[in-house]
Design a protein around this nucleic acid. Structure first.
Ligand SMILES: [Mn+2]
Ligand SMILES: [Mn+2]
Ligand SMILES: [Zn+2]
Ligand SMILES: [Zn+2]
Lengths: 139, 139
DNA sequence: TATCTAGTTTATAATAATTCTAAACTAGAA
DNA sequence: TTCTAGTTTAGAATTATTATAAACTAGATA
């Protein structure tokens, strides 16, 4: 398999996620991180695209495991949209989304584009884990 | 089965949801709407509570169907929390929520308790369907 | 470089929530 | 009372995801 000049950064991402660099994982890294722009995906679409082109075959289980490991290591972010399918984002900065209920696609909203000027205090003993907004849109 | 004095309102809710008033559906109505305060539930908890006490047995399929019909008729609201389970709310007014990731419970936040002073314009041809915020909290 | 082993991959099974099916039942119009 | 479209139900099917366990491999060590 041909791995771009970013090999080192992939190995570093994998090692810091407690994963050995294998050819399956490097292929996933290349697909996820060898790009100009961040993007959103589901495991289903990732699996199809990873295994469409030639080269190393990657099982669905490995895709699930790697995505999960990258998510807990902070290299991917999980976005809650519909109840039936997990969406992930290679943009790990805090930001908001439009979710189009027709096309089922996510679009980034820069963090500064939504201003919450009033937010309630959480119940005592609890703290806010995350305050990212998903705005549902439709035709 | 004993149905409270709200029978007429249940029949009206059912009829306007294009459902005939059956004893199963009236039992569900009574459990959902014969209360002082609104509340949040999942199909799993609803099924357990409906079928715990004596009286008409209601199948899981009927519970799913009735909850779905009430949701599209606007008598229940679906709240998106986790990706694995649907949550519903008998409070159908527009409002926000805390979602406790530990206890997996929802708490209402009155609509006026969150102020969005800046909201982006949706992509052309699309409109905002709903802008209710779920704030994830934890210990 | 050969050996060894903990970590990895994979096909497949299991699980969990939800939806579908089709046969038996029933509300309510006639 | 009869009739039929709508309803209920048990169980099967579906879908996303997680678990299992046997075959493989990275990479540390001899
Ligand atoms: Mn579902
Ligand atoms: Mn799931
Ligand atoms: Zn994003
Ligand atoms: Zn609520």
């Amino acid at each position: 398999m041909i791995i771009s000049g970013n090999l080192k950064t992939y190995v570093q991402k994998l090692r810091s996620s407690n994963l050995r660099p294998t050819k399956q994982r490097l292929k996933i890294c290349q697909f996820l991180f060898n790009r100009e722009k961040t993007f959103h995906f589901t495991v289903e679409t990732l699996n199809k695209k990873i295994n469409k082109n030639i080269g190393t075959k990657v099982s669905l289980a490995t895709i699930y495991n790697t995505v999960e490991a990258f998510t807990s290591a902070g290299y991917l972010k999980e976005i809650l949209t519909s109840k039936n399918k997990s969406y992930y984002d290679t943009n790990t900065k805090s930001h908001h989304h439009f979710y189009d209920e027709g096309s089922k696609e996510l679009t980034d909203i820069h963090y500064s584009q939504i201003k919450l000027s009033k937010v309630p205090i959480p119940p005592k003993g609890k703290k806010i884990k995350n305050l990212e907004v998903v705005i549902r849109i439709q035709k």
